[in-house]
């Protein structure tokens, strides 16, 4: 019987080491939930300011509106920054609990596969803003973020793959349903993050703390 137990432990060890060395499993679902909440707050601020009424058509004239554009970009940047900081805090807390280092081989692999599509998309969006073409910015950010997540899911939780696919589909719908960028942004960065973040938290973290 002890012989059997040893074999079983061996197999468990093999599986754990394969996963731990190739997948970044410290990512906390709570980072997704909070990123979603920040995104919804940010989107509401934009929606209820008068900036949005000009923005909705996608034909936003740049003359005299530059300050309002900066407000939009400022809010978006702040949401991104707050999400990254909160995400880092929750993830490092989870890594500590698991006795792992946050910045290991798998984290590097995941980050590089996420950020290559993300930075490409970010550059394209900045160029479009610069050319005064605002309508496609929201769909493109969703699509490139989705591509990044889809790519990164190979080195982390499988849920990231489905979150990525959902973001891509949402981005494509936002192109067809042109002119409602903010709404799709709020769904993609807000609701989807909260949904998948909660799912991951319940599946991997609750009861295992």
């Amino acid at each position: 019987m002890t012989e059997t137990n040893k074999h079983l432990e061996d197999l468990t060890q093999i599986r754990t080491m394969m996963e731990r060395s190739s997948r970044f499993l410290s990512l906390s679902g709570l980072s997704g939930v909070f990123a979603g909440i920040y995104a919804i707050i940010g989107a509401s601020i934009v929606y209820f300011s008068d900036t949005y009424s000009n923005f909705i058509s996608g034909h936003y004239s740049i003359e005299g509106q530059k300050n309002k554009l900066f407000l939009l970009i400022g809010i978006a940047a702040f949401v991104l920054f707050a999400s990254l900081v909160t995400g880092y805090l929750f993830t490092s807390r989870k890594a500590k609990k698991q006795g792992l280092k946050i910045w290991d081989k798998s984290a590097k692999l995941m980050m590089s596969s996420l950020f290559v599509p993300l930075i490409t998309g970010g550059f394209i969006c900045l160029m479009m803003l610069n050319m005064g073409n605002f309508g496609l910015v929201a769909p493109f950010t969703l699509i490139f973020y989705g591509l990044g997540l889809f790519n990164a899911s190979k080195f982390s939780f499988i849920e990231l793959k489905y979150l990525g696919l959902s973001e891509i589909i949402l981005g494509l719908i936002a192109i067809i349903d042109y002119g409602y960028g903010l709404l799709y942004w709020a769904i993609g960065f807000g609701l989807l993050h909260i949904f998948y973040g909660t799912l991951m938290y319940l599946k991997y973290e609750k009861d295992k703390a």
């Binding site: 060890q13 093999i14 599986r15 080491m17 394969m18 731990r20 060395s21 190739s22 280092k101 290991d104 081989k105």
Partner: peptide, 18 residues
């Protein structure tokens, strides 16, 4: 061996840590 089954080159320090 488990680590090397799913990763190409792994350095000594990474292995030690894992």
């Amino acid at each position: 061996m488990s680590v090397l089954m799913v990763n190409d080159w792994v350095s000594y320090s990474e292995m030690k840590e894992l």
